[in-house]
Design a protein around this nucleic acid. Structure first.
Lengths: 154, 154
DNA sequence: TTTTTAAATGCGAATGATTTGCAGTTAAAT
DNA sequence: ATTTAACTGCAAATCATTCGCATTTAAAAA
């Protein structure tokens, strides 16, 4: 059962990881909290849906979600990625850890891979033409069908 | 200097790799040829631009490019992928070989990786929760800045 | 070769995700 | 408390991609 935490408490909890230069607004704090409790990377639409649940009457703009995510991303607080098997971008808190997923093509469930199969990038980059390429990131995605969906397929 | 080859010759050249069940039209042959001479995977827009160069007056629909690519993809003739660093899908002939790229975030140049760093997928899939996951494919993308763009950055 | 027919095309309109312009708030610096 | 740059809501604009439908065409059948 989930604890009830006041907005003020939330704000305090995230004080440490909130980057300078990003204005801390009610909307952004809420988006941050949604991301921090998410078990999967979320799309802007999924985030907005959760926002609306908490703001049944208050006005709230979809564009604010996008703009906040962009601000978070620029500040290095959030990672955006586009999975092959989906047509929307997903966002997750940049924990510096998990980054890669196995994605079910049917139910779209995302299972995070423990660790990174490319942790030793050097050998990969020995490819000719890549000698002077400055690597800033990489993504690995494995797709197929999860246990449940395999069963559904009969 | 490029050789001049008649359309008829083109058609003959690709007779072997053209899959059954895919009607061979002037438009599709042209798209196929564009893909087969491309050095990078191309977006639908890039393909369409090249089509227009060859068809300065003849009518040609953007949607035909999409529909042809979809038909090719279904027939296993073409591979579609969405790169993290781009917002459009790119297509390439399914040679059964190269599939992974290093992408420059600035000029969008794509450098194909020789071989696949995940050729031994098994160890990766030992992740808990993935035991019963049926893998049908994967994608690896490395991004950063290519030699030229690094220089431009001063 | 002519006929037949399912599949492909052109065209424009529809969709869905994401972005943007602008006028009205608001966080946070003074 | 005042000021101001940054943020928000809202609606309209974009951009990639898909779809409906009437017309055309490749290729199967006669």
């Amino acid at each position: 059962m989930a604890l009830k935490i006041s907005p003020e408490t939330y704000v305090n909890q995230i004080d440490n990881s909130w980057p300078d230069g990003v204005k801390k607004t009610r909307q952004r704090v809420e988006i941050y909290n949604i991301l921090s409790t998410a078990k999967e990377p979320l799309s802007a639409a999924e985030i907005f849906a959760r926002v609306l649940e908490n703001n049944k009457e208050a006005g709230y703009a979809f564009s604010t979600v996008y703009r906040s995510l962009l601000a978070f991303e620029k500040a290095g607080m959030v990672t955006k990625s586009v999975l092959v098997s989906e047509d929307t971008a997903v966002y997750e808190l940049n924990s510096g850890k998990i980054k890669h997923y196995a994605v079910c093509l049917k139910c779209h469930k995302k299972i995070s891979l423990k660790g990174c199969p490319l942790s030793n990038l050097r050998p990969v980059l020995s490819t000719e033409g890549l000698e002077d390429f400055m690597v800033t990131g990489h993504q690995i995605e494995i797709y197929g069908y999860c246990k449940n969906c395999r069963m559904d397929m009969v």
